[in-house]
């Protein structure tokens, strides 16, 4: 992808009434995900403090920060894996306080995990079919007695799973045990499994970890493709700056659990606080 087309993709970013930024095209609708002043303490340690975000319906945002800054903890808060000590989270306008992880997923948040969590004893296709589980409607008795509806639905969703696998050109792995996949393919499968739950927001925790530059380049294209095709918002955590700068429209920088800067990738790259806290160590291009 040339830098010119990338440039064209850059939307106008506008300020909401809260301290959040959002692409102008998504302004008309309520944000698909909004967090207000959330924070969490582990014993005495404040892992995340006063975190705010609003995700437009088709926005791709990035969250960066040094190791241990609290990025994964934020994902765990947004998906209710951890209960926030402070603040509110709205998914599609609904307050998720007190909901289970499953309910939050049904509201429209799907995620991947930094330390891969596949259903490793199941096949690749089965992993995706678990994600389709809530769209499938057969009753237990229909399935147990193998009524025609069972077969029809299994076939239909098997085809859908193959279509999803097509995004990453992984159809040939459909019947491989997920645990036997190469590392990069496991990361991609996690993304597909998340997509199978029909999310409105996709949270990707270090999707490019362990990938080589070619694979990362391919992943960038695919992330954009997924956004365009499914019309969903994507929030990603990533250490690979080329990926963050390449696909993200808004980037937030986290340090010691606090957002220290927020803006377009260009702004972030110029921000002296960021350079000091984070990019400084790796050198700015």
């Amino acid at each position: 992808m040339s830098s010119e087309t990338k440039q064209k993709r850059r939307p106008v970013i506008v300020q909401m009434e809260s301290p959040n930024l959002i692409p102008e095209r998504d302004l008309g609708q309520i944000p698909v995900l909004e967090a207000k002043h959330i924070g969490i303490d582990f014993g005495g340690l404040t892992a995340v403090d006063d975190f705010n975000i609003a995700m437009g319906r088709t926005e791709i945002s990035g969250l960066i920060g040094p190791n241990g800054a609290g990025k994964t903890t934020i994902f765990n808060l947004l998906t209710n894996v951890y209960k926030p000590t402070r603040g509110t989270i709205l998914v599609d306008g609904y307050d998720t306080a007190g909901m289970s992880i499953t309910q939050v997923n049904k509201l429209g948040i799907a995620r991947t995990f930094q330390n891969i969590r596949l259903f490793s004893q199941m096949t690749v296709a089965q992993n995706i079919l678990v994600g389709f589980g809530n769209s499938m409607s057969t009753h237990l008795v229909t399935d147990m007695l193998r009524f025609p509806k069972h077969w029809k639905q299994e076939r239909e969703y098997r085809d859908k799973a193959m279509d999803l696998l097509g995004i990453f050109d992984m159809q040939r792995f459909a019947d491989t045990k997920a645990g036997n996949l190469p590392y990069g393919a496991q990361r991609r499968l996690e993304i597909l499994r998340a997509l199978a739950t029909h999310p409105k927001v996709l949270l990707l925790d270090e999707p490019a970890a362990g990938m080589n530059p070619n694979e990362t380049e391919e992943l960038m294209d695919n992330i954009l493709k997924i956004r365009d095709e499914f019309q969903i918002a994507i929030l990603l955590i990533e250490h690979d700056m080329s990926l963050v700068m390449g696909v993200c429209e808004v980037v937030g920088v986290l340090n010691y659990g606090k957002i220290i800067a927020k803006g377009t990738p260009e702004e972030i790259q110029r921000d002296p606080k960021v350079i000091e806290a984070y990019l400084g160590k790796q050198g700015v291009k």
Partner: peptide
């Protein structure tokens, strides 16, 4: 499949919408 998913990884199963 939902039952097997819980065995393989409970948190991932929940995050994938398995009740």
């Amino acid at each position: 499949r939902a039952i097997l998913a819980i065995r393989d990884n409970e948190i991932a199963a929940e995050a994938t919408g398995v009740n």
